[in-house]
């Protein structure tokens, strides 16, 4: 069975989106979800509504992981395949980190370019695929096979 690697953080389906919360008092948006009390120091709000964040944003920066990260990271493959990471600034005024969509590497990214949210498999365990949000670079230049670049 395919299921998100973490419950309630994003929607799946044709147009997936991150799920945050919006303070009903000052309208500040939070991702991951805030509840209980608003972290805007000028706001005493205590009620929040769930909100789907914009699916497109602008790349704030990017990198990759050429060595296998330590646990609790669960590698998707053996041998390890490097992956790229991007921080994307959304119209809601916040930057959200994510892995980059499979098949794309740092050569496909620039600060300031557009990226769109997709949902892909992060790892597979005994109950099936565990999915995660990722950033798909738009208007990408040249495609690179990340795995071939990082063979040291």
């Amino acid at each position: 069975m395919t299921a998100p690697a973490i419950e309630g953080w994003f929607t799946t389906g044709a147009d997936p989106a991150l799920l945050g919360t919006r303070c009903t008092t000052c309208t500040t948006v939070f991702f991951p979800k805030a509840d209980g009390f608003c972290r805007n120091p000028a706001c005493a709000g205590e009620t929040f509504e769930e909100v789907a964040l914009s699916r497109r944003g602008v790349v704030w920066s990017y990198t990759d992981a050429q060595y296998q990260p330590p646990p609790p990271y669960i590698p998707a493959s053996d041998p390890y395949e490097p992956f790229a990471l991007a921080a994307v600034e959304l119209p809601e005024g916040l930057v959200v980190l994510g892995q980059v969509a499979r098949g794309y590497g740092v050569a496909d990214l620039r600060v300031g370019q557009e990226a769109e949210l997709v949902v892909e498999t992060l790892y597979t365990d005994e109950s099936g695929d565990r999915t995660i949000w990722r950033w798909l670079p738009l208007t990408s230049g040249h495609l690179t096979e990340l795995g071939e670049e990082a063979d040291q």
Binding site: A5, I6, W60, S61, Y62, T63, D64, A65, Y67, P69, P70, P71, P72, Y73, I74, F83, L85, A87, L97, G98, Q99, V106, V111, L122, I132
Partner: peptide, 19 residues
């Protein structure tokens, strides 16, 4: 950050460097 993204300390340093 490790479980969902595999985001190590050097990866954060690299984001700042790339900018």
């Amino acid at each position: 950050r490790f479980r969902l993204l595999g985001m190590t300390n050097p990866a954060y340093f690299a984001l700042y460097a790339r900018r």
